[in-house]
């Protein structure tokens, strides 16, 4: 397993510094929660790591430098992400969604043939994300929470080693949140996980370590208890209370 090491990461949009010199270390197998007020730069940080926006500094996953590579290459190096708004291929079935996610390494020849059976990783993932019954349903017809799970399932079959989840439980019911949390536990057994979340209860239940981002900079870092006790964090969240989405 590999960890994530970020040094002096900077992203600016027309002069506006969305990420402003972030250093971040996530140990292999950790479940790191990334929190912070709206506009803190959390999503932008993940965008930078996955190659979606240009950034300076360095991002190492294991020994490999990620910055400067195109998105699809970073994905092939084992880095996967979900999006703030669930994005699945709505016109394809759940099975097809997963099968595509599992197939980035397929040879052109096998791409040109039909799928004759369900790959084992796919059927396992279907079990893990609890969507076996919806296998042949169009992804567009899934409930919101199920779409989020499908996204996570796609990361599983994609066999990524680093998962970056952007607000995975936003808009979920209580039960769905717990199920997602349990899923995180399973997933993190042999992977490194970074979760962006606004939901403090969810964070308290499932985070191993927490980083607080504010105005593009790291404000505080540590265990859940340490971070909550940090006066700087309280100041930033002052008046917001604990924001439950």
């Amino acid at each position: 397993m590999s960890g994530l090491r970020i040094r002096d990461l900077r992203v600016s949009f027309d002069g506006f510094k969305a990420v402003d010199g972030v250093d971040l270390d996530v140990a292999p197998g950790d479940i790191r929660f990334l929190i912070g007020p709206n506009g803190a730069g959390k999503t932008t940080l993940v965008d930078a790591v996955t190659g979606l926006v240009k950034a300076s500094g360095s991002v190492h996953f294991g020994d490999a430098e990620l910055l400067g590579r195109p998105v699809h290459q970073i994905a092939r190096m084992g880095v996967g992400r979900t999006f703030q708004t669930a994005t699945v291929f709505e016109e394809l079935t759940v099975l097809q969604n997963l099968d595509i996610a599992a197939g980035a390494g397929r040879s052109p020849w096998s791409l040109l043939r039909r799928r004759t059976s369900v790959p084992t990783v796919v059927s396992e993932a279907l079990e893990t994300i609890n969507l076996t019954a919806q296998r042949d349903q169009l992804a567009g017809t899934l409930a919101h929470g199920q779409k989020q799970w499908l996204e996570i399932g796609m990361l599983l079959v994609q066999d990524v080693r680093l998962l970056l989840l952007d607000e995975p439980v936003a808009g979920m019911s209580h039960d769905e949140r717990d199920a997602t949390g349990a899923l995180l536990g399973v997933v993190s057994r042999d992977r490194t996980v970074v979760v962006i979340e606004h939901d403090m209860d969810f964070m308290r239940s499932f985070a191993r370590t927490v980083t607080v981002l504010h105005a593009g900079k790291v404000l505080s870092e540590g265990s859940v208890a340490q971070v909550q006790a940090d006066p700087k964090v309280q100041e930033v969240y002052l008046g917001q209370g604990t924001r439950d989405a």
């Binding site: 291929f89 595509i100 039909r114």
Partner: peptide, 29 residues
């Protein structure tokens, strides 16, 4: 017909519907 029914055909629809998402799965759309 073969192209449409193959895995490539599914991938092509995926690219049509969300090119960026496909990129994050490790394909070059």
């Amino acid at each position: 017909r073969q192209l449409i029914r193959s895995r490539y055909g599914e991938l092509l629809v995926a690219v049509r519907d969300s090119e960026e998402r496909v990129r994050f799965l490790g394909y070059n759309p």
